[in-house]
Design a protein around this nucleic acid. Sequence first.
DNA 1: TTGAAAAGTTGACGGCTCGTCATGGTCTTG
DNA 2: CAAGACCATGACGAGCCGTCAACTTTTCAA
Lengths: 219, 219
Amino acid sequence: MEAALAKPALPRAPSGKREQTKLQNRQIILDAARGVFAELGYGAATVRDIIRATPLASGTFYNYFKSKEEIYQAIRDEVALAIRPRLREERMKARTVEEFISGTFRTFFEFVASDRIDFRSIRHNADITRVRVDTPEVIAGFDELREDIETAIPRGLFPPIDADFLMAAIAGVAFEVAERMMRREAPDPAAAAVFATALFLGGIRALPGAPEPSTETRI
Amino acid sequence: MEAALAKPALPRAPSGKREQTKLQNRQIILDAARGVFAELGYGAATVRDIIRATPLASGTFYNYFKSKEEIYQAIRDEVALAIRPRLREERMKARTVEEFISGTFRTFFEFVASDRIDFRSIRHNADITRVRVDTPEVIAGFDELREDIETAIPRGLFPPIDADFLMAAIAGVAFEVAERMMRREAPDPAAAAVFATALFLGGIRALPGAPEPSTETRI
DNA sequence: TTGAAAAGTTGACGGCTCGTCATGGTCTTG
DNA sequence: CAAGACCATGACGAGCCGTCAACTTTTCAA
């Protein structure tokens, strides 16, 4: 056993010309797809558009991805995989409801704000209609959130509530408020997080007042 | 002038063979489209699928709708137009935050539950990914909600909060919780409304306990 | 009643996308 | 160095898209 480990261990060669090109092609296609989705929106984009944004032949595309859906999922999944561990960690170390909730929202909104290009390419659409696609990886993120809530109940963080509904409520607020936040001139993740956290901790009555005191101008 | 009004008033004939067929064809196409979207999901459906589910020729379809998007919007808009007045009325007559919030959620969840076929055809999708499309009519519903919140602030129902974010939060919770509700064996709109209302009125701590009191077993 | 114009339907058509696959070039391995 | 594994290529048949000239039905004025 020792010898096998010490020696070159032939089957696991990380480089090799062939292997390199493959990685490279995959990356070329992914980058092209990101650009096309950002420009045309998911609905209007075609596989051909992506191929055209690439020096490769059409058949090559299908060696890497089965369809437009699949490459789109790959892109979304990169995002989901990047943020899920952060969210999870934030929730694990929470000692109070406050920490659980505010940690989740702060992390999420900050991520979205720092990642606006991907977010736009995911939400943007050519015409007026808005399309939202939840890939399996995103849905897995939802499941993690529900699990974390369920785990937190015996820890005394939450009352024994309907974890499924609470998960849905948190996700709904996170996505929808993020959307509004990103439409503003200067997206402010901290403010969004404060808003969402206050809502979940104390309801509407606990929400902070609006920025502009509109009473001033109309004496 | 009097004569013109008393006599048949030729230009406004509500029936007329031509007019009738037009209405009828439109309805045939809309019904076919509903069926196709329900069966294949929005993404997989093609205009040709809809035409095939119809006794009409392909060119005729385009006399009524420009594209798949447009006919889909027409279907969604029927739904949005049906529920929006009810929601608005519910909010107008609200005298307290409680009434504003619970009226909104109750009406929405009851509508969704009573309308499950349309809801499924709108949310359903062939593969694992979920697609949500908000047509202009739906977005107009969001705007109405925000307006109603803004109007309610001077009435003293709400503190002077960020109406845009609150609108987003309510919409997010409504859609996401409705989705979870409809996945259960016996969708219970009243329970969903109680949950959402309590959340917005008092935050997580105000939420009602889960069905099974898990505290009992662990004294 | 009649006939001409308006309105609407039809289905074939050119242009495009789709996913496949036989061909051929390049890397790897013994 | 040779044989084979691996994969890029691009042409291809199938099918979808939206259009439009030709045709049919309805309307309406004389």
